[in-house]
Design a binder for these strands. Structure first.
Lengths: 332, 332
DNA sequence: CGCGTTTGCGCAATCGGTTGTTCGCATTTT
DNA sequence: AAAATGCGAACAACCGATTGCGCAAACGCG
């Protein structure tokens, strides 16, 4: 049973080893001229006694915190996309010994952001963007704090990264059109969420390439719960659609549930596909065709981008940001 | 357009005001003897120039980081419970100018935790517990790092806080038994998640109080997707149940969907209730009776507990940790 | 008026590291 | 053999705050 252990400081190490703390510091950082055997001695001692430099003191001396700020809008933090994204970000950050400072923004999001910057609590910031407003980007540009954006950006000075939503949605839609479907409904949740807009663009792209025009009457947004889904499903059936494209997994599950209840056979009487694949679509009945993104990889990339800006030597290349259209029974 | 602004240090302030930095420090902290008018001058200047003390330097001097570690198991981080909980924690932390260091644990969770402690990156830790294993608690006890646990704890030395799952489940079950139901099925997801065990206990409690015994054949766990739900729903109908109690919102939505498809009228032929209320049950068809917890309040309480341990003067009392059984159409 | 107490403030050490510069010594060059 | 070079290690300043202690002026009181 390891007893309460003294916390060593660099001075303790220096004293016990009979060297100066400069030497200890250099031995550990590998910077500056220093003898090989000395390095070895120090390393061994440090290993033995489990010394860890105090990050706070290091931070003061180096003007560095080894913290990254992650800004997430509160109302979305539970969505599968964010879950995977956060997962990737954390995983990559930990590899480089950074930690993640979590900022859940609500109405007052700016105050938290400002605190991070003013108080020197982070070295850089990862900003997730859901709606295009929020002066956060402008604020960060002005503050000289390095940052990357997850989501769209029209500003060439801003490093941003995102899933290829538009392209992927185009491809999925194209696949359905190639199957001969001509009256596709598009169903989604929150209309102001940029991701839904990107997916809608892809949907339109595919149509236009073939000289088709999606019927505006077949666009249904704000489908967030079962009751709304029921109504939309009714309208879709009345409108004589031959296929339904859902913006995300949740909406898709709701719609599918409604179709089953109405006894509308998928895929026999109606094709169904989703523009985002989660854990539920594969094991649904029938399994639903959908687009799989490497969202975790996206998170890792975002993290690598910011680490790169902070001068870290990256150990891997960025992940290629692609996607897969996964064909399942719902479109057979 | 606010131009790039110089970052003031305490020395800058002192120089410009013609006082010592000791004075500035004292004026701002309110500690130590110092003249009223001096305090006023300093405060005004600081306000004017938006000076913010460098938290890292403060941290070194005071041995304090104003960071709280929040340990969350990666596989659950997206669940509604955690979302609300995190929300509450962050909200409360920000009020006291603390930030949240987010630790998503996977298999290797211990390494991250150890880093937080070894490197002095946090003042305290909030540990969320999902399964009862994990030597995290023992590790933290040994490390002398203040911490609280969200979840159950048998250890009297450990501060822990949780929703009253067992009591609430007992009450909900009791309500159903009082209605005359005698063959209740209990359906849930992950069986090793402690929260499901607590709820199951409450379910049993209610039965035993009345001298009944829940039929072990009516306990269905690991119902995670639609396909499994379909099978379970079949078995439930065969078993001639008169009511179904679901462990959480997601399972409940799946089961309800299955019932609708089979044309089984809820509540006419089957009563349905959920032991956790989320955003989906109220707007479902029919709306489902369920237990509402103040999970956000739980998060805030956990945060207040740890802040208290860290010597912060709390501005509010703890929230009373109660719950409501919300009666809806599904049990009428 | 003299003396003890209180008040306001600054000096300097400290927290635990990093880093530019110097210094002694061994090795190589001429 | 003297001068130039290179190497390893230490000195001391510094990062930006906090804090124990001491000093001088102002105050209270008999």
């Amino acid at each position: 049973m390891a007893q309460e252990r003294k916390k060593y400081t660099i001075d303790d190490i220096a004293r016990e080893l009979g060297v100066s703390k400069t030497t200890v510091s250099r031995a550990l950082s590998g910077k500056g001229r220093i003898g090989k055997d000395t390095v070895e001695r120090v390393r061994a001692f440090v290993e033995e006694h489990e010394y860890r430099p105090n990050r706070v003191a290091q931070g003061l001396a180096r003007s560095k915190t080894y913290n990254l700020g992650l800004v997430i809008p509160g109302e979305y933090s539970g969505m599968p996309f964010f879950r995977d994204c956060i997962d990737g970000i954390c995983q990559e950050a930990y590899r480089y010994n950074y930690d993640i400072l979590f900022v859940v923004t609500r109405e007052d999001g700016r105050a938290q952001l400002q605190r991070l910057v003013d108080n020197h609590k982070v070295d850089g910031i990862i900003l997730t963007r859901t709606v295009m407003n929020s002066g956060h980007v402008e604020f960060l540009k002005k503050s000289r704090m390095p940052f990357v954006v997850i989501g769209p950006s029209d500003d060439p000075e801003v490093t941003s990264i995102d899933n290829p939503n538009r392209e992927a949605s185009r491809e999925l839609t194209d696949f359905l059109l190639m199957k001969g479907l001509r009256r596709l409904a598009l169903v989604g949740g929150n209309a102001s969420h940029y991701v839904n807009r990107s997916r809608k663009r892809g949907f339109n792209d595919a149509h236009q390439e073939k000289g088709f025009h999606p019927d505006p009457a077949l666009l249904f947004m704000e489908v967030e719960d079962y009751r709304k889904a029921v109504r939309v499903a009714d309208q879709i059936m009345l409108a004589e659609c031959d296929g339904i494209v859902c913006m995300d997994e949740m909406v898709c599950a709701l719609i599918l549930s409604c179709l089953r209840e109405k006894g509308i056979a998928v895929p026999a009487r109606m094709k169904l596909a989703s523009m985002y694949d989660g854990s539920q679509l594969e094991s649904n009945l029938p399994p639903v065709t959908s687009i799989r993104f490497d969202t975790k990889g996206l998170g890792r990339n975002a993290c690598m981008e910011i680490l790169g800006m902070l001068g870290e030597e990256l150990r891997d290349d960025l992940f290629p940001m692609n996607y897969q259209v996964i064909l399942r029974e719902s479109t057979q």
